[in-house]
Design a protein around this nucleic acid. Structure first.
Length: 586
DNA sequence: GCCGTTTTCGGCCCGACTGTTTTCAGTCG
């Protein structure tokens, strides 16, 4: 069993124990054990084989035994029994905002609620509001949460869909019958969440490709399977569609299945205006719907289709009918950012707060990625849950980073770690650290982590005040949204953008696929007002460094170029810009 | 369930906010 799966099982046990009403510290012990395993530097099975689990802090006799059983047999009796004592879908209730283990326990015991459908029914007949400790508001909030999840139930986070899509694509590409292939759909357009994975391929023998696709190891079940099209369901219920066409049809099919629907409508209208007809099989000299190859206007690539319709080539990310046609007509499409333009990330966490890596590990990884700089911006003291730093610990961290930087320089490395903080924005826009401490940091990100329920005016005022502080460089994850989980708090984007423009404050594009915040739809406004974008990994874990690539994709969706993104600058230019905000406002 | 010159039980990370309550439990971060 892989270490990731062991971690999952331990975390699930912790939740089940809480639902049982067990000693919360017992549950905590399982979470701690999961954390400890996640940060292992060597393979778990080696440690188990050599009986060295006891050397890991947080693993006592009981957990050592359980982990050994998991690793060696692939299952854990204790876990199976615990699971069997609850309805199979009870844990899904914990994903509804406002519901924790205690409330779920009551709902289960008093009302027999075991899944989301039953919870919804109980709310609708008013049974939840009647429970002790619940009320009308709680019931309404639960219904709201259920509705939100329903609305997004068929959607998936971009990193999950992309990982699956790339694995599938790789295998389609490797098939001898494949001529060309690509991802398509909202995944290719880098939407913040996607419904399914679309793959388009060209081949002379479609059925061979379809057959191979349906038999791929990722496929859990085949939903539909024809001569040129197959629809399968993979892990996590993620659906994947393969569409196979002839190579002549390929660019048209690719454009059609990339969408968006709104973009395609305009494309077809432009074709009609030119006496042509566009569909997924080609561009035809015809007034009628047709597939007649004798009428085809041959195009070898998507770019040639655009050219036939009097347009510059439009990147997939921009195909939302959000101004791309005007720009493509007037040759004013932006030269979009490439993710390799990024030189580092200015918002990241370490073991000093809630990150998983030591400063040394972070530096090693940033070096490996070829970054010029990587800011350490751990949480401030009000974020207790995240082990936020007191001023004293922050001072100590500044020293530690200085030492590490000197070591890096002695070893001849170009990389610089930057000192910093993700400082909490408290009520009324006050900050969690005093100005003189902030002034000593190279990078200050200010974010809201508490008090999400304020009105739009209050939240906006808090963010504007934070931007007005000369020591704050960046506003972090502007709305606090968690994609597919909860809406962000309400903010007035335009007012905040204006405040950032006036104060020279940058806005973060948080590259975590759970956030992608600020939303791509606002970046053109920000750019037009001269507000810089910083694409930040908000890394808490080694795997998160890769989020920069996703963040860049979303920035492209927001029409941003290399020039618009601050962390494309080399270190000396960046340091100058960081200094500028502080000096220009004094 | 883990940990310990608090050596064998008692503590384990804290504060704001919300909605439920008339003093607090649960959730969230």
């Amino acid at each position: 069993m892989t270490v990731d799966r062991v971690v999952e099982v331990l975390e699930e046990i912790a939740l089940l124990l809480e639902l049982k009403g067990e000693n919360p510290f017992k549950a905590r012990a399982y979470v701690n054990a999961a954390r400890a395993l996640e940060t292992l530097a060597e393979p778990l099975d080696t440690i188990v084989t050599e009986h060295r689990l006891g050397t890991i802090k947080g693993l006592g006799d009981a957990l050592q035994q359980k982990i050994t059983e998991l690793v060696t047999t692939g299952r854990l009796d204790y876990h199976e029994k615990l699971k069997a004592s609850f309805p199979p879908n009870l844990l899904t209730l914990l994903r509804i905002p406002g519901l924790g283990p205690k409330k779920v326990k009551v709902l289960h015991e008093r009302l027999g609620v075991g899944d989301v459908d039953q919870l919804q029914a109980a709310c609708e007949r008013g049974a939840v509001a009647a429970l002790e400790g619940f009320g009308e508001k709680t019931q309404a909030k639960i219904l709201e949460g259920i509705e939100f999840q329903r609305r997004h139930a068929s959607h998936h986070h971009l990193h999950v869909a992309l990982a699956l899509g790339e694995r599938l694509l790789e295998q389609v590409r490797g098939h001898p019958a494949t001529i060309r292939c690509s991802l398509a759909g909202s995944l290719r357009r880098s939407k913040e969440v996607v419904g399914d994975v679309d793959v388009v391929a060209s081949s002379a023998s479609p059925s061979a490709l379809i057959e191979s696709f349906c038999g791929l190891p990722e496929v859990a079940s085949v939903r539909a399977r024809g001569e040129t099209k197959a629809s399968v369901v993979c892990a996590d219920g993620l659906q994947a569609d393969l569409r196979v066409v002839s190579d002549r049809e390929y660019p048209f099919a690719l454009a059609y299945f990339t969408g968006s629907k709104e973009h395609n409508i305009v494309m077809r209208r432009r074709a009609i205006e030119r006496g042509l007809r566009l569909n997924e099989y080609g561009l035809f000299r015809s007034e009628e719907e047709t597939r007649d190859p004798r009428l085809l206007v041959p195009c070898a690539t998507e770019d040639e289709i655009f050219a036939e319709l009097g347009l510059d080539a439009i990147s997939p990310e921009l195909r939302e009918d959000a101004g791309e046609f005007e720009a493509a007509t007037h040759h004013t499409l932006p030269r979009l950012l490439k993710w390799t333009d990024l030189r580092g990330s200015l918002h990241n966490h370490s073991q000093w707060s809630d990150g998983r890596q030591t400063l040394e590990e972070i530096a090693a990884q940033a070096l490996e990625l070829g970054c010029d700089y990587w800011a350490i911006t751990d949480h401030s003291k009000s974020s207790f849950q995240a082990r936020g730093l007191t001023p004293e610990r922050l001072e100590a961290q500044i020293k530690a980073i200085g030492q590490l930087n000197r070591q890096l320089a002695r070893d001849g490395h170009e990389l610089r770690l930057l000192t910093g903080s993700e400082v909490d924005i408290l009520s009324e826009g006050r900050l969690d650290f005093e100005d003189d401490l902030l002034a000593r940091l190279e990078v200050v990100v200010a974010s809201i982590h508490h008090g999400f329920s304020g009105s739009e005016e209050e939240m906006t005022r808090r963010l504007v005040r934070a931007a007005e502080n000369p020591h704050v460089h960046i506003l972090g994850h502007l709305t606090g949204r968690l994609l597919l989980e909860r809406e962000g708090y309400k903010v007035h984007h335009a007012k905040i953008i204006d405040a950032c423009a006036a104060t020279g404050t940058w806005i973060e594009l948080n590259a975590s696929p759970h956030r992608f915040d600020m939303d791509w739809r606002f970046w053109r406004l920000a750019r037009d007002k001269g507000v810089g974008c910083v694409i930040n990994a908000d890394a808490h874990h080694p795997a998160h460094a890769g989020y920069l690539r996703l963040g860049a994709a979303v920035a492209r969706k927001g029409w941003l170029t290399k020039k618009d993104v601050i962390n494309t600058r080399p270190l000396p230019a960046l340091l100058k810009l960081l200094e500028k905000k502080r000096t220009s406002q004094r």
